[in-house]
Design a protein around this nucleic acid. Sequence first.
DNA 1: ATAGGGCCTCCCGCAAGGGGAGAGTCAACG
DNA 2: CGTTGACTCTCCCCTTGCGGGAGGCCCTAT
Lengths: 269, 269
Amino acid sequence: MYSIGEFSKITGLSVKTLRFYHEQGVLKPTCVDDQTGYRYYDDTKIETARVIRALRDLEVPLDDVAEILRSHEDEGDVLEFLERHRQAMEAKLRQLTMIRASLDRIILQQREARRAMQNATFEVQEKVVDSLLIAGVRMQGRYSECGKGFSQIGRRMGRYISGKPLLLIYDAEYKEDDADFEACMPVSKETTTEGISVRPLAGGRCVSLVHLGPYEELGRSYAKILDYVKRKGYKLRSPCREVYLKGPGMIFKGNPKKYLTEIQMLIEE
Amino acid sequence: MYSIGEFSKITGLSVKTLRFYHEQGVLKPTCVDDQTGYRYYDDTKIETARVIRALRDLEVPLDDVAEILRSHEDEGDVLEFLERHRQAMEAKLRQLTMIRASLDRIILQQREARRAMQNATFEVQEKVVDSLLIAGVRMQGRYSECGKGFSQIGRRMGRYISGKPLLLIYDAEYKEDDADFEACMPVSKETTTEGISVRPLAGGRCVSLVHLGPYEELGRSYAKILDYVKRKGYKLRSPCREVYLKGPGMIFKGNPKKYLTEIQMLIEE
DNA sequence: ATAGGGCCTCCCGCAAGGGGAGAGTCAACG
DNA sequence: CGTTGACTCTCCCCTTGCGGGAGGCCCTAT
């Protein structure tokens, strides 16, 4: 017979834990001294303790452990128990996997936003953009409505999004209330989804300007880039693009004064 | 201004949760009526509530949420916070993955044991065993020591184990104290590991007998199978094999009277 | 006799709320 | 103006699986 301290050293379960297991009826001492209340364990309890440890290491709830130990005679019950527990673990695992994926997306997004902030010159530049596969939702109305389109794409294509959201603007002139535009996300996989157009978007030479500040002040940057285009005598190819390098994130709305938006206007060569 | 019930419907956070968040200082009402203690929230709190929801959905601890909201000005801090949180989630995920793998192994083992119990005839049979890839630890001493070898293989090769443990017995005659044997596990991948020999084990025609009962009684079945071999005039090929169809499991020691052990003796053709 | 360690019970704490009791408040309806 | 039903308040206990500590009893050795 072992005292609780000795038994604790043998099994690796803390004294507190052993008392708790006694209270819960999971692992009862072989005998308890009436006078002193001292708990004593014998050798057969070592095996029981090992079983409990094994099950707890598998994160089986203590109540279930107790039940397993009670109906231990029939090994078939245990199998079904374990299968149910596996289901539970699997569910947790799926949830954690999704959380990790979300975190990865958010972190990547933040990192890119930070890099974009460092690289931005806030001057008109000429560059070549690659063609890329996009998923888009064409909309009419106010630009402020475009969030709906982005979230629709996010819900349907979440796993395949591979870049910054962008807006294609089909109007030749600025319209406030009845604009014609398309909310787009670069995607890595060509899937067919109702209401969402997945297709390649052609690249080419373009003039580009990164705008720092809230969307209401985009007009200032448009003026700057259009002035540049006019001086150079370039001919524009519709639609014009806005790439949201840094905007309201998935968690924080952020500070609009720090939003970064790249205006891209493709030109004919 | 919204009452707590209205705000609850707007944000999807329960009234209880809102009161709790107030108590924890995570989301304070815009004002509280001195007389009645009623909490009132304004529109700006909706955004805060959304942020909290987003972070809680990512299982960020409430204390961290509070800290994030306090130091919300600097978005860089948030990024590091999220990276740390990702680490934590990753650790949990790894643990869960290991638990799931263990559960899978145990469940599969139990299922196979059950099937083996149903299929066993307890008569000597002749059959052909396939060759299979094994990981083995050669040992000298008592058979009861073989558990060490199996657990060593389990620790090193856990992921690749693809079948029942088996023992190769190199002695020509029965030895008690100084037996020469090898604890083996079928594995799916040929890896090199110190102290463990991974190699293919040749198959072939063999006589086989499934033994039901504790290992101490194996002698009875050995007598039976050797008698059969002698009557048939077969010539045996060393080593002899014991396959542990059902023995002490990873959780339960089980009932030795229900242990199933298959004795396989390969014969020359 | 006393000192030191071991053991006992009882209570509080953790994370993130849920459930409910008992009492006070608000808004609408007759 | 009174009442009623819905709403809200605080306070307390519950969850899981223990850990920490207080205050007190027990055992053995010197």
